[in-house]
Amino acid sequence: MIEIDNISKRFGEIQAIKEVSLQAANGKITGLLGPNGAGKSTALRVLYGLLKPDEGSVKVDGTDVFRQRPEAQRKLGVLPDAHGLYGRLSAREHISYFGRLHGVAENELEQQTDELIRLLDMQSIADRRTEGFSQGERMKVCLARALIHRPGNVVLDEPTNGLDVMTTRKVRELMLELKQRNITILFSSHLMHEVARLCDEIIIITSGKVVAQGTTAEIRSIAGEDNLEDAFVRLSEGDGP
């Protein structure tokens, strides 16, 4: 359960997000949809504790992210905006490094790593150094290391950005698998059809503000458009109701 309550963040003159509130519930996939530069990444960075909001609060399973950052981060699995890897470490080493940073016990670490490697279908690359990995292979490593501590809440910033069809499909399967396990999933995207297909709940954000929130059907009716894409464009341009 993720609760974002009325957060605002300003960088100098630029108001990146303003009074953003949203909730993501257990066992549901919540999509944060918005054009590039709408403030999606800023909102998520506030959520996972890297930026301090000027006002408002964020709670993960009831734990305040700013008062108890490490405790809240322990409950989160995060795929951040930046996907950097250590070129000299293998995929498996990346996963176990993050597991250890999360305090996963040594005897569970190997088993959990193997499970993720199987789940993400990365057996053939697990023991290779990540130097020279393809975009899709890199994304799998990032996802696996974000999930190694079995978080109850997963936050993914543009998880399918720049991936080929095969990997994109794999990522979607993973999200559905996590949903099956009653995990809270919040992910951002600028791809309409992706959000429409996967999400139980959609939040449309543009120019740092939430302009619409609801199920696919609800969004369509808010915008007064039959087609979700038209609804998105209308809402994004700020001439919604």
Partner: peptide
């Protein structure tokens, strides 16, 4: 190096001081 290869943000997301 962490900043250059953009591995710092994923690292800071971990619950470590």
């Amino acid at each position: 190096g962490e900043r250059e290869r953009k591995s710092l943000e994923p690292l800071l997301v971990n619950p470590v001081q």
